[in-house]
Structure formats: C-alpha cells, structure tokens
C-alpha cells in the first residue's frame, strides 16, 4: 500500500487569520496560444479560460486562473482520489496536447494549496509581499503571481478575505513556518 503524505497537516488560528492546507485537489497547468485552444477548453470544461490578465473563471467544481497570455492553472474545489481518478488530466491531454493545441501538465503535487481566511489575511501577506493588494482585496476572483518572503506564490482571491495561495511543494514547509511566525505579530 502506498500512503498519501501531505507536507503540512495542521490548521492554525491566529487573531483574524486561519491558515490551513486543502490537499488532494487536482491541479493542471494549461498552455496554448490560439483561439482553438480556448474554445476546446471551454467545450471540455464548460469554463472559458480568461484572456484578460490577473483574473480567474470557474464554476462550483473548477477554477481556471490566468497565469500569463498563454498559461493557466486549473484546479478543483473538491478532493480527488488519485487511485481511482486520473480521467480529467487524461481527457484534456488527449483533447489538447495530442492534437497539438497546446500543453496539459499535471501539477497536482507541484503546488501545495494553502487557504487563508479572516479579516487580517492581507496584513499577513503585507509582511512579505511587495504586491499592492489595495484593489485586489475587493475584487473577487482576482489572481496574482508574486513573491511572499522571497518565494514564488500564486494567490487566488476566492472570496472576501478568503484566499487560496499556491506554493511549490518543496518551499511549502518553509513558507508555512514563516507564515505562522508572521501571524503571531498581526
């Protein structure tokens, strides 16, 4: 038997901030340049990947985050059991990569998703992030890629004061512990 190991298991509560890790959501990196790529993704997922920068699109199951003019991150809201389900990735790979429309790459374990909730989440981020959140915090669905404590992150503004933050797995423990250290002083 192979066991599933998340790098971070616990959730923490601080004044106005709750940080936790939601694992086993599927994450897929999508890349493509032309109109057909967008149309095909839209057809397969019933979500059109946003072509405007710094935003996302989605439904109750999936989110597509804009990462660049030819790059998106797809992630699910629900947990996925990998032992029995690889169908989404395979289906997209066949429909996109195989027919030379772009690329489809499973990055489920490349990124760890950390959820930050509470009135003080932006206080926490401002301890180590040069990004200006003044407009971002009020626009639901906004996306940014930036640095947090010198580590690359993707931040998705799911809801008011409810963020999903993606960090590369190898950095996740370091960032987690830095976030906990920062949250003490908020």
């Amino acid at each position: 038997m192979l066991n599933y190991n998340s790098p971070i298991m616990d959730a923490k509560n601080y004044s106005g901030i709750k940080i936790s890790v939601t694992e086993s959501v599927i994450k897929i990196n999508l890349r493509g340049k032309n109109r057909d790529f967008i149309t095909k993704i839209g057809k397969e997922l019933s979500i059109i990947p946003p072509t405007d920068p710094n935003i996302s699109s989605g439904n109750e199951k999936l989110n597509i985050l804009w990462l660049g003019p030819d790059e998106w991150l797809l992630y699910s809201n629900d947990k996925i059991d990998f032992k029995n389900n690889n169908s989404l990735e395979d289906r997209l790979f066949d429909q996109i990569s195989k027919v030379k429309l772009g690329s489809v790459t499973n990055v489920t374990d490349h990124w760890v998703m950390i959820n930050l909730k509470g009135d003080n989440v932006f206080e926490l981020l401002s301890s180590g992030c040069p990004f200006n959140f003044n407009d971002f915090k009020n626009s639901k669905g906004a996306v940014t890629q930036t640095l947090l404590n010198h580590i690359d992150v993707i931040i998705h503004n799911k809801n008011i004061n409810d963020l999903n933050l993606f960090v590369r797995r190898s950095f996740s423990i370091h960032l987690w512990s830095w976030m906990n250290d920062s949250a003490r002083f908020i």
Partner: peptide, 12 residues
C-alpha cells in the same frame, strides 16, 4: 516553435 515548457520539479 510550437513548444511549451512546464516545470514539474516539485510534482515528482
């Protein structure tokens, strides 16, 4: 060139 690169260092 029709080529896409995606880092998967941490995925595996």
């Amino acid at each position: 060139l029709d080529v896409y690169l995606t880092s998967v260092t941490d995925n595996y």
